[in-house]
Design a protein around this nucleic acid. Structure first.
Lengths: 341, 341
DNA sequence: TTGAAAGCGCTAACAG
DNA sequence: CTGTTAGCGCTTTCAA
């Protein structure tokens, strides 16, 4: 591996000069700089991140801690983060809990603290006090994406408003019998997003004087399979079922659509469905939903961290990221008015 | 940040002893070792990866290079890789091309070469000669997951056999009019998996003396939306359409199912559909498919790399990973025998 | 505008 | 079993 010294020697300057020239620092003559670049290029020199990390105290890498990689939201955030980091010359280190708690201890007490990263982005998950302390001990910039974590600033949509918009859309259409499929803390990781969305559903219903039935608030775990299973139960009785379902995630909404197809229930004639996300499948399925962009959220959070690292500008409390109601063909006014209230 | 020296001083030993004790090397008395662990613990000492990386030449990190994070296959592989790495005490560095070619240059000529990683896992993508050379110049263990790359060993299923199994299943059921939805090289990244699967389809049809029509081989880009669009075209004429569709990916198969629902075509009575993947949605949708486990593939590849790093054992040509036909409710014997051949 | 020199925090011989 | 001594390859004062 060619080192900085090889480059320096090859053109008869000091390693300090090479270092300065390559990093674009001032105080290097134009001609020297170009000679350095030329030499580095022909020798194929690439600085060692370990060495510069050790010497400068900055690793030029950022970490992302998440409960699971293989979920639409999480991987999309990762994509956005990576894009910004790459553009800024940073690398991305991923710490996944892999859907279970087994790795937690190891991740928090070893990996993350190894000075491998300059900043950390945490994807919505509940942390123990001990873990929170670990993160604070890092004393490098930290931010949370998705659901908020007590005491740490976070980037994400306004979940309360988003859920209200979804439910209000159904109410505006004339629905009064609205069920809710809620997400939740599977894979040992609880966080408050599903709770906020459910409370928004309840509050919106209450604000309009509409009744909610406990058995119409079902657990779908944010996922297709569980959403479908819940919907099969919810919709099985033609004589007594809701005219609309608000789903806390698009994947659960897909489950409802699939269940309706199996049961021969027409959408939107007999059942309206609204989700949250604007998942890749939502548009081709015609799903009305609340759009959010996890990729943009990841990029935004990464930029915040990057700015802090570079310029020292800290945003204490970032404004919520935008969300938007996208009306497609899965929602319409209720049909069976005569049957119910 | 407390350093190894702080630990050493606090119990009156040398830094070398601390280093040895903490890494579990032989030649440290039991009592010393426990005192070291005690001190490290109370002081909250965690070794700096930059420092040990520089000194030992091993970063204890592995890289994964992929075209895009937010795709079922890719993120699942990542999950499997991460799990094995975490267990082995390694960190995961992710290099995503982000779906376009913009980052390629940067990734190949800077990020990857910075000595940040001890080994590299490349997710199926076509590489230029120049890029291939860059990787070889790394001279650290490398492996490809997914489609093969010329000159680099790879881990993945036997795509030819998998596709043959899928098509053979349809033929066994009695289908003769079988269409194919193929994947492809979107986002500027070509690779050979879709080609192999298509050739297997053609070969299997030919082997059974069955005709294929050019217009029954459609491009679905491995995705739901494009798969659905293609299916809407393929299935629009009730008088002249296939009785079965073989899809190179489950996501496209979902598109076919959705298109069939929109067109009022019953599955499997009027149309059989088979996919490849066993995506999370396949079981709840009743999709017959060829199961593969990207997570297992990622874990397997990571293990290979890890073994090489630790023991020096190199597997030149790993055997294909298993695949399996999972029969569900989307396939059945053809119904409209009278209409066609 | 440039160079010399002192580390950054750890590992790896080599002694003892 | 343990300590000493060099570095690993870069950055960063401080001088010149």
């Amino acid at each position: 591996m060619t080192s900085i010294e090889d480059v320096a020697k090859s053109i008869g300057v000091s390693t300090a000069t090479v270092s300065r020239a390559l990093r674009g620092l001032p105080g290097v003559s134009v001609s020297t700089r170009s000679r350095v670049f030329g030499a580095a290029n022909t020798l194929g020199y690439v600085p060692s991140s370990s060495a510069s990390g050790l010497a400068s105290g900055r690793t030029m890498a950022m970490g992302v801690l998440l409960p699971l990689i293989e979920r639409w939201y999480f991987s999309a955030v990762l994509e956005g983060v990576d894009r910004q980091l790459r553009a800024a010359g940073y690398d991305l280190v991923v710490f996944s809990l892999g859907g279970s708690g087994v790795n937690r201890e190891r991740v928090f007490h070893r990996s993350i603290l190894r000075k491998r990263i300059d900043a950390l982005l945490v994807m919505c998950m509940e942390l123990t006090d001990d873990e929170l302390q670990s993160l604070q001990a890092l004393d490098s910039p930290t931010i949370v994406v998705g659901g908020s974590v007590k005491g740490v600033r976070h980037v994400g949509i306004d979940d309360d408003a988003a859920a209200r918009d979804a439910v209000a859309h159904l109410i505006d259409l004339g629905h009064t019998e609205i069920a809710h499929l809620r997400g939740g803390g599977s894979y040992g990781i609880e966080f408050e997003v599903p709770r906020i969305r459910e409370e928004a559903y309840l509050a919106t219903m209450a604000a309009h004087g509409l009744p909610v039935r406990p058995q119409w608030s079902l657990f779908g775990d944010f996922r297709f399979k569980q959403g479908k299973e819940a919907a099969l139960v919810l919709l099985r009785d033609p004589a007594d079922r809701p005219t609309a379902v608000f789903c806390s995630s698009d994947e659960m909404a897909f489950g409802v659509i699939s269940a309706a197809a199996d049961l021969g229930i027409r959408i939107p004639e007999e059942l309206s469905v609204v989700g949250i996300d604007d998942h890749e499948f939502a548009e081709p399925l015609g799903l009305t939903t609340i759009r959010q962009s996890p990729e943009e959220q990841g990029a935004f959070a990464a930029d915040l961290l990057l700015a802090e690292l570079e310029g020292g500008v800290t945003v204490a409390d970032p404004a919520p990221r935008p969300h938007k109601l996208i009306i497609r063909s899965s929602t319409a006014p209720p049909f069976r008015r005569s049957v119910c209230g």
